[in-house]
Design a binder for these strands. Structure first.
Lengths: 248, 248
DNA sequence: CCAAAAGTGTTCAACATACACCCATGA
DNA sequence: TCATGGGTGTATGTTGAACACTTTTGG
């Protein structure tokens, strides 16, 4: 808060200040068993109508930031209870040419099979691989890049990657996911040893059918151990350069 | 950006939205060779006049967020060219009772000896240790805690700690600094080996006088190596639990 | 000459990496 | 029966952690 001579009246001080629109924009990450994708929508209003952009909306009078980000995500995708984490605020005066807007960004991790493609008819939405992004609205390209860095950092220190997978998943799926996030390849022996050592994974008796002949065991997340251990950092995957790789 | 039926006129859509005040609040960290401190000011306006709070101010029409945070820091402390990094945005509807305000926070690393205590007469400012924080305005307690976590994370992966020290500093000073940041103790042999291995430190011929009898060699930061290497992560200090310690 | 802080090497344990073969099964 | 992907163990190198003595010098 600005600290000035107390004789200046409160209301004058507050009223003199510029007000801004506050937007919440989400970088929605998904994984289709092949690549890490971002869900984009074709903007329905001028200016820049039909430009691909992040999903977003404006902050309403009586909601907090996280609340608003969740609401907007639900309105646009129908999804609830999604992993959502604030990334950063962007506020260059020129970023939205119509009105001064500060955008607060979140990244969301969703399981693509939960996302029915046709939630809203008004809304043209599409998944894009990170190496095939179209031209994006305003500074959204930068925002996606920053969000990817944060995802990479976070996923290398905290066990959150599974949020991109279904309830039950196989180790090969999990490995492909991390390979997609970091754009590297791992040795499967080292990978499974490392992940199993976290104790967050519960092996089920069930095997995946249809993809490979042998079938891989399904695992699920041990939520109780996960909840008690998630405050702690685990450097379980990428130890060097996590978050600093470049976006093609 | 909200994506709706294109027939809705642009201006109506933008004009309908709530606008907020945007504040920039900085957690100013300093180090006095003993403990990590935060610089707080006594608020000069109602409500909560005389409550200790973070240094902050409002976003002006034609400035970006980083620019505004730098301007405010300079206005309040006289300091320029300070390490400043965005932490997060806070926007609970009740956080400022006068007017809906979204606060975007930054942490600043300054060298306490650069900060003359009496920059502004209107402004009562004081350094507080993290374990002796007074009651703080609004949600500033949470903000300080979050900023400390970010500082701990950042300083454990990137060589930024020296921003809290003078141009020339000794290894024992640097070690005390990191011990203060993480509230742990290090072995001095391991510490110096690890820090010197970064190659960011240049030993000078000069020794510190007056503090110890033997005197410790001064080091400075090799800016050229630092600039070229700062994008890269170095996990050179705390490998477990960085950023997850609790604030007393 | 002694107290106080500076400076320096080695050993051991833990972890990361590299690497290759057998297994299960659907076609 | 064979092609495909699943599953597992070991050896080596690197890195982190623990640990103690000598040096310098102001008082």
């Amino acid at each position: 808060m600005l600290n000035l001579n107390p004789s200046i009246t409160l209301l004058k001080l507050y009223k003199e200040q510029t007000k801004c629109l506050v937007a919440l924009d989400s970088i929605i990450f998904g994984f289709d068993n092949e690549a890490l994708k971002v869900l984009l929508v074709k903007r329905g209003i001028e200016p820049n109508i039909k430009t691909w952009s992040l999903m977003g909306g404006w902050l309403q009078p009586n909601e907090g930031l996280d609340e608003a980000a969740n609401r907007i995500l639900k309105e646009l995708t129908g999804l609830d209870n999604v992993y959502l984490e604030q990334v950063a605020a962007y506020g260059n005066p020129e970023r939205d040419p119509v009105e001064r807007t500060v955008s607060i960004t979140y990244f969301a991790l969703i399981n693509v099979s939960d996302y029915g493609t046709n939630i809203s008819d008004d809304l043209e939405a599409k998944w894009f691989g990170l190496d095939e992004l179209p031209e994006l609205l305003f500074d959204h390209q930068t925002i996606v890049f920053d969000a990817l860095q944060r995802l990479r950092y976070k996923a290398s220190h905290h066990f959150i990657g599974f949020e991109l997978l279904p309830e039950k998943f196989t180790l090969p799926q999990l490995q492909k996911l991390y390979e997609a996030i970091y754009d590297v390849e791992f040795d499967k022996r080292n990978f499974s040893r490392k992940l199993l050592a976290t104790n967050f994974l519960l092996k089920t008796e069930e095997k995946q059918r249809g993809y490979s002949k042998k079938g891989a065991y399904y695992y699920s997340v041990d939520k109780s151990k996960y909840d008690s251990g998630k405050a702690t950092e685990h450097s379980f995957l990428i130890t060097t350069n996590a978050g600093s790789a470049t976006l093609k």
